[in-house]
Structure formats: C-alpha cells, structure tokens
Amino acid sequence: QIFVKTLTGKTITLEVEPSDTIENVKAKIQDKEGIPPDQQRLIFAGKQLEDGRTLSDYNIQKESTLHLVL
C-alpha cells in the first residue's frame, strides 16, 4: 500500500502493486475521493509523475507517500 497526502492534509491509503501505472493510481484516487484523474497531479520526491509510467519506474515502494496537487 502507499499513502497519498492531499493539500488539505488528508491522507488516503491505496492498495497498489509496483506494476501499477500512475494512471491506474489516479483512477483509484477517483474511486475513493471522486476527483477526476485529469485534475490530479501526483508528486513524489519533488517530481511530477507521468501517467504512462509505473510506480516501480519511480522507485515508489510500499509505505511511500505521494503528494496530490489539484
């Protein structure tokens, strides 16, 4: 699982696999929060994550925290 922290300070927990794409993660966030993926920007280690890449591409491991910017 990974954590996604929103600007409001809320933390969302997501069940993911390293092979999941960023697009996939955004879809999971939409399921939980109702935020359309095209409004979501995910930041990890100061980098904006691209939809077509996977979590493992960015070396995002379990218990990692991503930041969600709208």
Rank of each mutant, 00 (worst) to 15 (best):
T6R: 06
P18A: 11
S64D: 15
Q40N: 03
V69W: 10
I12E: 01
L55W: 03
L70T: 13
D38G: 10
Y58K: 01
R41M: 15
E17N: 14
L42I: 07
L70R: 08
D57W: 12
D31C: 13
P36V: 06
N24V: 13
L7E: 15
T21E: 03
L14I: 15
E23F: 14
Q48M: 12
D57A: 06
V69N: 06
Q1W: 15
D38V: 08
K26V: 02
R41K: 13
Q48N: 10
E15S: 15
I43T: 11
D57H: 12
S56T: 07
N59K: 09
P18I: 12
V69L: 11
L14F: 04
G9R: 02
A45G: 14
I12F: 10
V25Q: 00
Q40W: 06
G34L: 05
I43S: 09
E15G: 06
F3W: 06
E17A: 12
D51V: 06
I29Q: 00
T54G: 03
D31A: 13
Q1G: 05
R53D: 05
E33Q: 06
N59R: 07
I12D: 00
T21G: 03
T54H: 06
P18R: 06
Q48R: 08
E17C: 15
F3D: 03
N59V: 04
Q30M: 12
F3S: 05
V25E: 00
Q61R: 10
S56M: 12
I60H: 01
L14C: 04
I12L: 08
P18N: 07
L55T: 02
V69D: 07
A27C: 13
V25T: 03
A27M: 15
Q30A: 12
I12G: 00
K10Y: 13
D51G: 06
K62M: 12
I12C: 03
L42P: 00
E63F: 15
Q61K: 10
I22E: 00
Q30T: 10
Q39N: 10
S56Q: 13
D38C: 15
I29F: 02
Q48I: 15
D51S: 07
D31Q: 13
V16H: 05
V4P: 01
R41W: 10
L49P: 01
K28Y: 06
K5N: 06
L42E: 00
G52T: 10
L70F: 10
G34N: 08
E17G: 08
N59D: 13
Q39D: 08
I43L: 12
I22P: 02
L14V: 09
E63H: 15
K47S: 09
E15N: 12
D57T: 05
P37S: 14
L70A: 10
L68R: 00
D38R: 09
E63I: 03
I35C: 06
V69A: 09
R41G: 07
K10E: 09
T6W: 12
S64Q: 08
K10W: 09
L7M: 15
E63Q: 11
F44G: 02
D31N: 11
E23R: 14
T21K: 08
H67W: 09
T6Q: 07
G9E: 04
T65G: 03
Q39E: 11
I2H: 01
L55E: 00
P18S: 10
D57E: 09
T11I: 13
I12V: 06
I2T: 02
E23N: 08
L14Q: 01
L66V: 08
V25R: 00
V69H: 12
T8Y: 13
E33I: 11
G9C: 07
G9M: 04
S56E: 12
L42F: 03
K28S: 04
E15M: 15
S64N: 08
F44N: 02
R41D: 08
K5V: 14
K28V: 04
D51E: 09
P37I: 15
V4I: 13
K28R: 07
T6K: 05
D20I: 05
T8N: 14
F3A: 04
K47M: 14
P18H: 07
V25S: 00
K62T: 11
V69T: 09
L70G: 09
Q48K: 08
V25H: 00
D31I: 12
G52P: 07
E63P: 03
P37A: 15
I29D: 00
G46H: 06
V16I: 09
G34F: 04
A45N: 15
Q39R: 10
V16C: 12
D20G: 03
Q48G: 07
I35M: 05
K32R: 10
Q61A: 13
L68W: 02
E15P: 06
V16P: 01
I22V: 11
E63C: 14
G34E: 04
E50N: 07
Q30H: 12
R41N: 13
D31F: 14
E63N: 13
Q39W: 09
F44H: 06
G46K: 04
E23V: 07
Q1V: 15
A27V: 13
Q61F: 11
V4W: 01
Q48P: 12
E50T: 06
K47L: 14
N24Y: 10
Q30G: 07
G46W: 05
T21H: 04
K47I: 15
E33D: 05
D51M: 05
K32S: 10
K62E: 10
I35R: 03
R41A: 10
D31M: 14
L49A: 02
T54N: 05
K10L: 13
L68P: 00
D20L: 05
T65W: 07
T13H: 07
G46Q: 05
G9N: 06
Q61D: 10
L55D: 00
I2W: 02
D20W: 09
P37W: 12
G9L: 04
A45I: 06
E17P: 03
T11C: 13
T13V: 13
Y58I: 03
E50C: 11
I60E: 01
K28W: 05
G52F: 12
I35Q: 03
V4M: 02
Y58F: 04
T8S: 13
L42M: 03
T54W: 04
V16S: 04
F3R: 06
L55P: 01
D38I: 10
D38K: 09
A45R: 11
S64H: 08
K62R: 11
T54F: 06
Q1A: 09
K28L: 09
T6C: 11
L70M: 09
Q40T: 05
V16N: 02
G52V: 07
K62D: 11
V16A: 07
K5S: 08
I2G: 01
L14W: 01
T54D: 03
E50H: 09
E23K: 11
R53K: 15
I43D: 05
I12K: 01
H67V: 13
D20R: 02
D57Q: 07
S19L: 08
I22D: 00
S56D: 12
D51I: 05
Y58S: 03
E33T: 13
I22H: 01
Q30R: 11
P18C: 11
D38E: 13
E15D: 14
G34S: 05
L70E: 08
N59G: 14
H67N: 08
P37M: 15
K32G: 04
V69P: 01
Q40P: 02
K5D: 04
Q48T: 13
L55G: 00
I22N: 01
Q1I: 15
Q40H: 04
T8R: 08
N24C: 15
K26Y: 03
N59S: 09
R53M: 12
Q61N: 10
F44Y: 15
P18L: 15
P36T: 06
E23L: 11
D38T: 12
L14Y: 02
V4R: 00
Q48H: 12
L49E: 00
L49K: 00
L68H: 01
